[in-house]
């Protein structure tokens, strides 16, 4: 039986493990119970800063602490990080202060809270900022490992985590195989490559199973780092498979699909099909219902793969 877990729990666990580094501080904007920074708060209240419901302030308090030698992890819902975008741009990214911003409850998968809570543009907007690393891991294990790696990064970062549980993929994985900036090949096949992130990685694996039944071999990549994109891996699968599908619970504009498209447009004629939210807002629904409504679930990835192969 596959273990199910939410990536936000991996984030909370990582903060707790990072606490042995006395320079690590945690900033909250009221949502620690939800983002899972609460575990750190309970263990280390003296290094946990409540910023109230004030995200703009939180980002720059974090920047001030980073400039003073601390390693701040600030978190709130993905959607609410966006109201502090200019603070992230001008106060964090521009002076390249290593503030680590985590947006939980990202994507339509967050479910019944409805469209106001479903950030489908966070990866795109943070990806436009120089110096900023952008991550969207797919399970609690990789979230924990990547979050811990951020503590020694010299650059600021944005990481999206998800509210709801998804299958855990890396319980038995070698931790060294999970590194910022390195896509992880989960399945090897030579007919099409599915490059996915976050909650759609497990959907991509299901799609690969369905394709296998049709005699089509699919490579599946967990591209947990959207920026810097592992372009070496993209190039490798482009030349080996000759057709690519991207899959993300995010707008088709500017996210993982955008990043891969930008790269491919300069380097190859490989056909690319992007699975993502079709430039629209969501609504209230269960996580699985949202993936269906938004045409993000595995059958839609299969269709996109067939289209990409047809275009070879």
């Amino acid at each position: 039986m596959t273990r199910m877990a939410a990536t936000r729990d991996g984030y909370g666990q990582a903060l707790l493990e990072l606490a042995e580094n006395e320079k690590v501080v945690v900033l909250e904007a009221d949502l620690g119970k939800s983002t899972k920074s609460l575990h750190f708060r309970k263990a280390h209240p003296e290094r946990t800063i409540s910023c109230g419901i004030g995200e703009q302030n939180m980002l720059l308090v974090a920047a001030g602490m980073a400039s003073s030698g601390y390693i701040p992890f600030a978190s709130t819902f993905a959607i609410f990080t966006e109201r502090a975008f200019e603070q992230m741009r001008n106060g964090v990214a521009r002076p390249n202060l290593a503030v680590h911003l985590c947006g939980s409850h990202g994507g339509t998968h967050t479910g019944t809270d409805g469209s106001s809570a479903q950030s489908i543009e966070d990866l795109a907007i943070y990806r436009t900022l120089p110096n900023v690393t952008v991550l969207h891991p797919c399970d609690d294990v990789s979230t924990r490992l990547l979050t811990k790696q951020l503590a020694s990064s010299k650059n600021p970062s944005y990481m999206r985590t998800a509210r709801n549980k998804t299958p855990v993929l890396y319980d038995d994985a070698d931790p060294k195989a999970i590194q910022i900036g390195k896509g992880i090949t989960l399945r090897q096949g030579d007919d099409v490559a599915i490059i996915a992130c976050g909650v759609l990685v497990s959907e991509a694996l299901k799609a690969a199973d369905s394709l296998q039944e049709k005699g089509i071999g699919a490579t599946v990549i967990d591209m947990h780092t959207i920026k810097p994109l592992d372009v070496g891996l993209v190039d490798e699968v482009a030349s080996r498979c000759g057709a690519i599908v991207t899959a993300e619970d995010h707008s088709i504009i500017g996210g993982l699909g955008g990043a891969v498209a930008e790269h491919l447009s300069a380097s190859s004629r490989t056909p690319l099909e992007r699975v993502g939210v079709q430039d629209r807002f969501g609504e209230s629904g269960q996580a699985d219902e949202m993936l269906e409504l938004m045409e993000l679930s595995s059958p839609h990835i299969v269709k996109a793969a067939l289209r990409a192969i047809d275009r070879k």
């Binding site: 501080v25 003296e46 290094r47 800063i49 703009q56 302030n57 939180m58 980002l59 720059l60 308090v61 974090a62 920047a63 001030g64 602490m65 980073a66 400039s67 003073s68 030698g69 601390y70 701040p72 200019e86 603070q87 001008n90 106060g91 521009r94 002076p95």
Partner: peptide
């Protein structure tokens, strides 16, 4: 502090003051 956008310096200063106190 890298300024230029109004309304940001007080938060940044608060971060510096907090860091000093924790340290």
């Amino acid at each position: 502090f890298s300024a230029g956008s109004l309304g940001m310096g007080l938060s940044f200063g608060m971060g510096c003051a907090l860091a000093a106190r924790i340290e």
